[in-house]
């Protein structure tokens, strides 16, 4: 197969299109196949991402904004994107990887709700962020340690219970106690949280829902 494809631009275009089509038809299996085809054909992985994946996920985002599609399609597109990226990213030289920022995200200690966090995690990824998903019931110290380890600019803390939102404050208090509050932007979200709560605990912003969280992350990526 790879021998047949060759490396002329015509074939490259076909590869980019099949990747783009996979994203636009929300098809992870097709995205995986297209990414593997590109790797076999030895096309530059960064070029594949920039020409095949990025424009496609951009189109998906536009459709969502225009209410032509809803969250389920958006999530599936993000999954397809993630599948392809997992294969392609390791082939891109580290110094060439460009992401808006790294976000360390998780659901706080004592809380195992993950649906909302997963929506945001996927949408961040689809929007060009490098996402470190820490999962659920994440210890306060783990948020900070992992953020440091991955050189994250943003910490995202989700809490779905009125009894666990206090852990969002703990993260900020912990950063303050380490004298490292300014190193990270902290954004909070989840059912019982509000803008007032975010202000009260000194967070850098509140994500009311997935879409506003992405806007917030874009803002925070540029600096608080």
């Amino acid at each position: 197969m790879s021998a047949l494809l060759g490396r002329n631009s015509m074939d490259e275009k076909k590869l980019f299109k099949s990747l783009s089509d996979a994203i636009l038809s929300y098809d992870s299996a097709a995205a995986e196949k297209a990414a593997k085809d590109a790797i076999r054909a030895k096309v530059d992985a960064l070029k594949v991402i920039e020409k095949g994946l990025v424009p496609a996920i951009g189109k998906v985002g536009d459709k969502f904004e225009k209410m032509e599609i809803y969250l389920p399609e958006l999530m599936l597109a993000a999954e397809a994107m993630k599948t392809a990226m997992t294969l392609l990213l390791p082939l891109v030289p580290k110094d060439k990887i460009v992401s808006k920022a790294t976000v360390a995200i998780g659901t706080v200690q004592g809380d195992v709700h993950e649906i909302g966090k997963n929506i945001v995690s996927n949408m961040l990824m689809a929007n060009g962020f490098n996402v470190i998903d820490l999962g659920v019931d994440v210890k306060t110290t783990t948020f900070v340690e992992e953020a440091k380890r991955s050189n994250a600019k943003i910490i995202g803390a989700s809490a779905l219970m009125s009894s666990t939102i206090g852990s969002q404050k703990d993260i900020i208090d912990y950063l303050v106690s380490l004298k490292e509050r300014k190193k990270f932007a902290v954004m909070v979200g989840g059912g019982p949280t509000t803008g007032e709560w975010s202000d009260e605990i000194g967070a850098d912003g509140w994500g009311e829902d997935a879409a506003t969280t992405i806007k917030l992350a874009n803002k925070l990526a540029k600096g608080k």
């Binding site: 209410m67 809803y70 969250l71 389920p72 649906i115 909302g116 929506i119 059912g191 009311e208 829902d209 997935a210 879409a211």
Partner: peptide
Amino acid sequence: PISMRTGVI
């Protein structure tokens, strides 16, 4: 149901 626009209940 959750809102298919925002994910919020």
